[in-house]
Each structure stands twice: as structure tokens, then as C-alpha cells.
């Protein structure tokens, strides 16, 4: 199994192919559309992270000492961001998740495209993931 840092590097490498914001946007939309929808039974208020312009539902689970995440959003772009986070974080060891710096968000130039309220939504999603891992 790849380490969290290795997966982050993979994403960074993928994004070097994109020359501009439009290409990145199209890619994030594409992976957002490919991310499987979350089972409706998890789309409940307790699992909801309320953003300013979109909602996210995050379901966390643990199996054989590894942490798994599934999530969904009413925004495809946010689903794309989730897909990236899941690729990096899901199936990893609790320690890796808790200590993840997630520098790739800056490196691939995603952070600078997000207005403050949107960036806060991403931050609360990451916080929830880490909280679950810390408690596992």
C-alpha cells in the first residue's frame, strides 16, 4: 500500500500537466463526476459539513487498523476536491492521517482559487477526517 506522502506526490505530478486554471477545473469536475455517490443513509445532518454555498456529507469508518472515507456534495467541484482528499487520506493509517500536512493543496494551486469561505469548508472537512483518525 502506498504511503500518504507518496499519494500526495502522485497528485502533484498529475497536476504538472495542467497549464491553466481551466484545465485544472475541468479535471477536478471530471474526477468529481466519477466519485461514487454516497449511500443516501449517510446523507444525514450528523454527517453534514455546512459550507456557505455547498454541503458535504462525510462518512468515516475503520477496518483492520486503517481509516476509510466516503463523501458526497451537491457541488461537483467540491466532489472533485473530496476525491483528491479521499485518494490521499482513505485507507491510510490513523497516524499518517493525523500528521498529514496536505501540502499538495497549495502545490497544485487549488488553495489560491478558493475564496475564504470555500477554503474554510475544505479545512473543516480535513479537521473532521483528522478527528476521526485521532479517535480511532
Amino acid at each position: 500500500m502506498k504511503s500518504l506522502a507518496e499519494t500526495e506526490q502522485e497528485i502533484i505530478d498529475d497536476f504538472t500537466f495542467f497549464e491553466n486554471w481551466e484545465d485544472k477545473y475541468n479535471y477536478i469536475i471530471e474526477i468529481g463526476q466519477q466519485l461514487p455517490s454516497l449511500n443516501d443513509k449517510y446523507k444525514i445532518d450528523e454527517l453534514r459539513i455546512q459550507g456557505c454555498q455547498s454541503s458535504v456529507w462525510l462518512h468515516c469508518s475503520e477496518k483492520d487498523g486503517r481509516i476509510y472515507f466516503e463523501a458526497d456534495s451537491d457541488s461537483v467541484f467540491v466532489k472533485g476536491e473530496i476525491a483528491l482528499l479521499i485518494k490521499v487520506m482513505s485507507g491510510k493509517l490513523p497516524d499518517e492521517i493525523v500528521n498529514a500536512k496536505l501540502g499538495f493543496i497549495d502545490t497544485i494551486g487549488l488553495r489560491q482559487q478558493l475564496s475564504m469561505t470555500r477554503a474554510n469548508g475544505l479545512a473543516s472537512m480535513i479537521r473532521r477526517m483528522k478527528q476521526f483518525a485521532a479517535g480511532a
Binding site: N20, W21, E22, Y25, I29, Q53, S54, D74, S75, V76, F77, V78, Q113
Partner: peptide, 14 residues
């Protein structure tokens, strides 16, 4: 089929 924010962000890329 399009979320308002997603469309707005697409317009931004343009």
C-alpha cells in the same frame, strides 16, 4: 444539473 457555484467557477475560468 449544474450547481450554481460550479457554474460560477466555470465562468471564472473564462
Amino acid at each position: 444539473g449544474g450547481n450554481a457555484m460550479d457554474i460560477g467557477m466555470y465562468l471564472d475560468t473564462q
